[in-house]
């Protein structure tokens, strides 16, 4: 059984570095590096592992500006076979609706048995694109996958990490899963992988390749609009107690009680 696995990735700014200037209300982007969304690197690792175990191919795909090429090369260096950059000015301003439509069209063109996405991206934090792709392609889904227990000819058994425990689900193939960090530990790129990533010729898809109506792409195809962005109220450091543990604990319990916290 050879699985055609497609992994969706996103290049994101290392968001822990993104801050707003609270006075000017603008973004401080200085020195912010771009990385493969951390949850997506678990998705790539899982795709590569499944391919290694069951045979088949692992293809990564991203929708983004031309510079997202680097993120795709990073995935090639850790074992992905092929990489597609879905890039076009017409995709600009896409919300999760338009993004999932565009990615679904690209994935349909690539061909697939299993689609793997990260749980969510760390910049947008929506967790909406994976399930969105599943609906556009009329697929079943298993979100928050923490383990793939079995892969059969027609279905797979997946453990899902939920709020209060673990659900085991049998999902038919083709299907889509989104993964959490617990599923694996991503490998580091090998020297051979790095060489291949350097030389690899990326495959590119534009709006014209995807047979989508212009009105459904980018900002025009996005039901949501960002009205404004602003800095959250700053959080100032508060009262710190030092000295004898016993006295510190007394003071802490007293202030917490006073504020009705305990």
């Amino acid at each position: 059984m050879a699985l055609r696995i497609v992994v969706c990735i996103k290049q994101v700014p290392d968001t822990t570095e993104v801050r707003m200037d609270p006075v000017k209300g603008t973004l401080i982007r200085e020195g912010v590096v771009s990385i493969v969304n951390p949850f997506d690197s678990y998705a790539v690792e899982e795709g590569v592992r499944l391919k290694e175990k069951h045979g088949g191919t692992c293809t990564v795909v991203t929708m983004g500006p031309p510079q997202a090429e680097q993120a795709l090369r990073d995935c090639i260096s850790v074992g992905a076979d092929e990489a597609y950059l879905v890039s076009d000015r017409a995709f600009a301003g896409s919300d999760t609706w338009a993004t999932s439509l565009t990615l679904a069209a690209a994935i349909r063109k690539i061909g697939f048995d299993l689609i793997i996405c990260g749980k969510q991206a760390i910049d947008g934090d929506t967790a909406q694109v994976g399930p969105g792709i599943a609906v556009h392609l009329d697929l079943p889904q298993a979100t928050y996958a923490r383990k793939i227990r079995e892969v059969g000819e027609k279905s797979m058994i997946i453990e899902r990490l939920l709020e209060e425990g673990v659900e085991t689900m049998e999902m038919p193939l083709p299907g889509l899963i989104t993964v959490v960090k617990e599923i694996n530990e991503p490998r580091l790129p090998s020297l051979k992988g790095k060489m291949r990533a350097k030389k690899y010729e990326l495959k590119k898809l534009t709006a014209a390749d995807l047979d989508l109506q212009p009105g459904k792409l980018g900002l025009d195809g996005s039901p949501t609009r960002v009205m404004k962005i602003f800095a959250p109220p700053p959080r100032a450091g508060g009262e710190v107690f030092k000295g004898e543990a016993d006295q510190c604990a007394d003071k802490l319990v007293a202030v917490l009680a006073k504020n009705g916290v305990v």
Partner: peptide, 12 residues
């Protein structure tokens, strides 16, 4: 968004 470093107001 951006891990809570930025807030965004969205309309539909």
């Amino acid at each position: 968004a951006f891990g809570g470093n930025i807030m965004a107001t969205i309309l539909c």
